[in-house]
Design a protein around this nucleic acid. Structure first.
Lengths: 289, 289
DNA sequence: ACAAAAGTGTTGCGCATACACCCATGT
DNA sequence: ACATGGGTGTATGCGCAACACTTTTGT
């Protein structure tokens, strides 16, 4: 790690220009969970997961929606560049963030070679953002072909992701091909068609998948909720992400370590008041990187 | 995804040069599992995890060991560039690969701003590589400070990673700082000191962590073993990665779905012959990305 | 009264842990 | 004979799925 004298000499002579360089962006898939309003005074509002997209006014992909991002600044870290980007462009200040994946396909940007270091951002519904819209999800996965081979298998899945904001509907069709023979497992995710700019529907798919997987063994979901919440709210949040129904009693037991009960209750709701909870900040003490 | 006419016009006028571009490398943390030879004719060889490092003959970090990598080629995908790199530089052809993390700290390369898209590569002990050495691991983690705060906690861990190849010993000291207050969790991994080039000890740490975590719920470990293996070999492999001892009977039950028994047995070993197994290629059929 | 959510209790099954035990082999 | 690994059986207990049931509120 220490820089030697040889290195110092070398650095004086070093020219920056001999290697080809790509452009690099940092891109943020921003998700939140909102309450869908409801006419029935008894019923709880339904939880819906949403993604934040901005409308592109300039080429490339003019008039298309895209995820928020920016070309990186060589004087800042990747993370800091992203923080500044979402703060300046869309007024987002409070969020959870983790690196997702670095996309580098050759033709993903029509201008030139551009790598995208993508991040998953989670925020709660109280943040009001500018210069973009929140889109609802609708996801359909159909496993349309499965071949069992001699020493493996081949699967093809069609993934239809429909994004909706009022009248605006964005259709996206991905195809996931898994080819497994022996130990060699090849997974290719390709875009069949997409109304989004670039390969951004892939980033969104990766983000959703990451969120789903981390739900089980981390406390990541709490980043989507307000500070105080009821256990049914928490459960609805899990159900919306997983796409399945959970049993109430069991859910309460499983999440009991993750939450701290408060001495506050909701009311005026057409049903029994419910206790409010907060995230237990001491839960994941033995976390690793 | 379709390129519009507006876009086409734009692209004709587009100049590639107006954004600052970083250099980008792809880097491979290559791990394998070998058998440590043994004098006792009865005893099974001990399994040891190793990492492959190359010796740097030129600045920067001349005379230091580093992970294998290369500056990217703008005419190739990241993955293909890496495949070619390990094939040409060190004659590695058969391996498991997955993207690890993209490192982008400002000072990680003394020359200029360089991003590293890092990959985890696993190979089995039969591949013989050129232009580099395999290093044994020794890892010590000490949790030296834990503060429980009002709404969270602060932990500092020292991580000592010693790499050894014959007489060559490389010492590395990392510090992991976790600051958790409420939902905000900040994890910083910093290099206290390292005998390796660049921040490569961080890549290695990430690789080990990924491997450890994926061990439980994937079949990733089989990439480290020969095609045919005994269950005790498999168990030793798990134990070496996890750093804990496992119970034999339970391990066999847990892994029974992952393997296929063969009608072959080892012999001439000073103990009862053991059945050979292969990886069950149809195990993870319902895998997701 | 009733619909909806809040919350508790119970039962049974499956799986993991821990341990005991027998088998087969080469020297 | 014996050390070593190969391999099986089983008791115990915990966790989770499934379901039943009670409580509390506003209209």
């Amino acid at each position: 790690m220490q820089i030697s004298n040889d290195d110092k000499k070398f650095l004086e002579l070093y020219s920056d220009s001999k290697y080809q360089k790509p452009s690099v962006t940092v891109d943020a898939v921003i998700l939140r969970m909102i309450d869908k309003e409801n006419d029935n005074y008894r019923k709880l509002p339904e939880k819906k997961l949403q993604v934040f997209l901005t409308y592109r006014k300039y080429p490339p992909f003019v008039d298309h929606y895209a995820v928020v991002g920016t070309f990186i600044d060589l004087n800042n870290t990747l993370e800091h560049t992203l923080d500044l980007c979402v703060k300046n462009k869309i007024s987002l200040n409070n969020f959870y963030k983790e690196q997702l994946f670095t996309f580098g396909d050759k033709q993903r940007d029509p201008r030139t070679r551009v790598l995208s270091v993508s991040y998953l951002l989670l925020t709660n519904a109280e943040e009001s953002l500018s210069n973009g819209e929140w889109f609802d999800f609708e996801i359909k996965q159909t496993e349309n072909k499965t071949e069992v081979l001699n020493d493996g298998y081949a699967v093809e899945k069609d993934i239809i992701i429909t994004l909706r904001n009022g009248e605006t509907i964005l259709n996206n069709h991905l195809k996931l091909k898994i080819n497994s023979s022996g130990l060699k497992m090849e997974k290719v995710l390709e875009i069949v068609s997409s109304d989004l700019a670039f390969d951004h529907i892939k980033l969104i798919y990766f983000a959703l998948d990451r969120l789903k997987n981390k739900l089980e063994y981390t406390d990541i979901a709490f980043n989507l909720l307000p500070q105080k919440f009821t256990l049914t709210e928490l459960k609805n949040c899990y159900e919306e992400i997983l796409g399945t129904k959970l049993l109430d009693a069991n859910f309460r037991r499983k999440t009991s370590d993750l939450v701290c009960p408060l001495n506050e209750f909701t009311g005026e709701k057409g049903h029994r008041p419910s206790q409010l909870f907060t995230h237990n900040p001491n839960w994941d003490r033995d976390a690793n990187f």
